[in-house]
Design a binder for these strands. Sequence first.
RNA 1: GCCCAGGUGGUGGAAUGGUAGACACGCAGGACUUAAAAUCCUGUGGCCGUUGAGGCCGUACGGGUUCGAGUCCCGUCCCGGGCACCA
Length: 1042
Amino acid sequence: MEYQPRLIEKKWSEWWKKHQVYRVSERPDKPKFYILNMFPYPSGAGLHVGHPLGYIASDIIARYKRLRGFNVLNPMGFDAFGLPAEQYAIEMGIHPAVSTEENIRRYRQQLENIGLSFDWSREVRTCDPKYYKWTQWIFSLLFRHYYDYDADKALPIEDLVKRLEKEGNANIRAACDDDTPTITAQQWNDFSEKEKQLFLLKYRLTFPEESFVNWCPALGTVLSNDEVKDGVSERGGYPVERKRMKQWSMRITAYAERLLRGLDEIQWPEAIKDQQRNWIGRSEGAIVRFPVQGHDGLFIEIFTTRVDTIYGATFMVLAPEHELVSIITTPAQRPEVQLYLKWVASRSERERMAEVKRVTGVNTGAFAIHPITGQTIPIYVADYVLVGYGTGAIMAVPSGDQRDWNFAKAFQLPIIPILDSQKNLDQAADPTKEGRYINSGIINNLTFEEAVPVLLQWLEQRGLGRARIQYKLRNAIFSRQRYWGEPIPIYWKDGVPYLLPENELPLVLPEIDKYLPTETGEPPLARAQHWRYRPTPEETYEYEYSTMPGWAGSSWYWYRYMDPHNDEAFCSQEALAYWRCVDWYIGGAEHAVGHLLYSRFWNHFLYDLGLVPEREFAKKLINQGMIQGRSSIIFRAKESFYEEYLWIKVLKPYLDSFGPMRIPQTLAEESFMYDFAFATNDLVIEVVSWKKAEKIEIVRQRAEADGKRLLVLFTEELAADINAHEKTANRIRQALHSREPFFMSEHVPEIEQLFVSYELTAKYSPECFSRLHVDISLVSEDVLNIEEARKRPMFQKANFKVGPEGRFLCTYEIEKMSKSKYNVVNPDDVIEQYGADCFRMYEMFLGPVETSKPWDTKGITGVQSFLKRLWSLYVGADNTWLVQETEPTRQELRALHLTIKKITDDIERFSLNTCISHLMILVNELRDLKCHKRAILEPLVVLIAPFAPHLAEELWHRFGHSTTVCDAQWPAYNEHYLETDRIVYPVQVNGKLRGNIEVDAHATIQEIEQLALRQDFVLRYARANGVKKVIVVPGRIINIVV
RNA sequence: GCCCAGGUGGUGGAAUGGUAGACACGCAGGACUUAAAAUCCUGUGGCCGUUGAGGCCGUACGGGUUCGAGUCCCGUCCCGGGCACCA
């Protein structure tokens, strides 16, 4: 019987479901293995072939680990809050919960179709109140804690209150707002309740603060930095502006150092770790204070990573937003400074980014006093200094910093070399740290390493500076002015935010009439009628109206899978003690600094509270690459195409030989008045759409006035006759000979658009065409099926200009799979044709999981015939069972065990594409050997089970087993079968392969050497110069140097 | 500009410093067949030569280390990803 994947796959996926084969529970007798895919967002477009890449890979690992005796947790769920569902709700009026539910249903169905071993009884959804109750609960914990640097962990806010009552905050080293004043115990105790609460907000790990945010008016919401791309919202593409708003914030900066250090203890790709390190952006440097001349006690505080260059500081620069600008600017400079500030404010972030090279700035007229030399240096304002970084002010060292150098050149400021190794300072800045200092007072002749401590000590003693570690990392804004997210469990009383008591959780998302901000600009939740907090019948408070961002629910979800239905806790301590953390985490690299950093932050926090057992939640991370789409592109003629067409295809070739007439040599020559004019004939030609009647009339009147005869050619008729140039040529000839003054067709075809086959486009300027995506189902081998295409609305009135072979060619582009690019391939279709096992194996066979590659079914037949061949080892014609009980030969055992070894090694190092090659090699060999022996074929079923589970299950049961192949045992590798009596050595001469010799496996190095030297092919080379050296690498290779 | 990952046949890709191109697609030739599909067999990096004869070149480019380099080091070019006036 032939291999029939659809029958087998249907049968076993139902059997698995019925017998709950993938159900998992805590099993203290077995070692655990927790493998997790990154939380998918269930988009309305459904799953395409790119999505399952990581799921298939992790499924193979999960099944393999189970066969190796591990108790494997392999769950799946949905990150179900988010903007697309909300956008859909706004447009269609459908509740996001409804569309989300529908999307999830479709996703699950598609996932089940692939044969993935998810334990669906553990599915979680972030939008389920039973789930987000615990997201809100973790938020509450963050609100109730602060970060103490001495303890180096989060502590309850009550601890802080006790210390404030006793000693004020002078000796408290804790993460807090920059503007936190130093207070005494007395002051604290004198605070009113409101003042106390507002003061504590400066310490809480989540807190509301005024901050600059990316406000998106079209969405009525605020977006985080990574949701903004090129100044527009990533989803939807709406404009975004900087706006100051009150937002909930997460004090992730408190954890900067630990997030950085933690990277050393996890096996994540270096690229991801580097990105996180850059994002955290730790820099060691110094804070230095520069007094302002004429302003007693006023300092400009700067941060520098190169305090050693301080003698080269020849001016200072403040960011335009810096608060000292207005204070220190001299009256004479004030108008100019104000003008500059106004200009800077008018420029968007985008413009500022686009003009990196341009140097702008203005002198404040004020001077700073250099803290070491005492010299005065001018103070400028310039927008290359950013208010959000460091202190918003710099000491400018033009000899060492290129931007300072550019500024100094533009404003003719001095450039002082400070190291004897600095070169070409008239060309560019030289940021070297090499050499010894010059022009540098107390550090002259010292090296970089020697100079820094000397300067820091000098500055510190005089109170002018100190060492400082600075992070680029900013606190994370946590509110969204949206509906479809977790409500923040906060109510407002007298302008102070209070936490909702734990027994009020979950605070359930209320129903609202429409999913838009209110008329007064408040978030959508403000629309909810009667949605107020009423702790007692007398009290009524407003809830917080913003909701949590997308990353809230995904920052702890891996714990919920451990114990998904627990109503008493986010996860039981027993489940936590057993599963502990994720062993292998698989997902896209695009989450490197969003999800993966925020998740680590929440995990560190939960760890501080003793709620979870591990500091880092994912021990090993693997990034799967994207499977890109291969879009088909077609070319649509624009207006200007018709002029070029007329010139290239009609006028030039058909009229060249035409007597005394001369047509313009280039298009530019004559075309400023008419599209075409003839040098020795009074005819002019105008190309125009018949719809532009008014334009025809204007041209006609002009031709009359000029005494020219006019031929009007409609783009529509050109489009219709595009495959027959001579027709147009004849019309022009007739017009040239005629004495009629005006030519125009009376019947014009109704053709809207002309599409041009790809190979023809090279002759015309690129501006002649628009590039359009065409549905890849209409295209095969880059040839468009014109008949099918005409059935689509976009092509109903189209004409196609085909190539010389009568075919219409498209070009292609490799890009992200997306509905809008018409390049989506649905796994269901591939599975329908080839089966799920084939689809799974082919996705893996394509290449390393980590690499991105375009989807192409070209090679899938190779995997298909491999599966057929494998099947035919077991099952013959008429469904006969071919397996025999004969003793296997040494050769067969050797082939099997070699494969066991290779596959085991390769799965462990996550090289799944090569595993499939090894299986192919084994099956090819067994087929050549006509091997149908149980001792070989039964272990082979287990080897293939992680990759093709349906097929393996079918064969496993045909072997007479009644339990699932998932609980079989991974075959043990026996080295004994790989031992051989004879070894073939490749023999090189001077590193070049010249031949092979076969030697006894137990031969000594000397024996091997002697044998090699006797070979003809060696002697041929050795004779001339004699042998200098022989290298024998046992079991590997021989190299003879002559 | 900075950081990271890459560059191997017509294609996807393989190769702990040890026979470059495994495995597969495609292509060419052949077998089976009335035919097609399916299946099977043979060949397939380039150039020169041969018809059981081998040689030269070859992993983006130029150098280096090594008995031996796709792999390690230095420099250049190109493609991709990330960050981007970060003091």
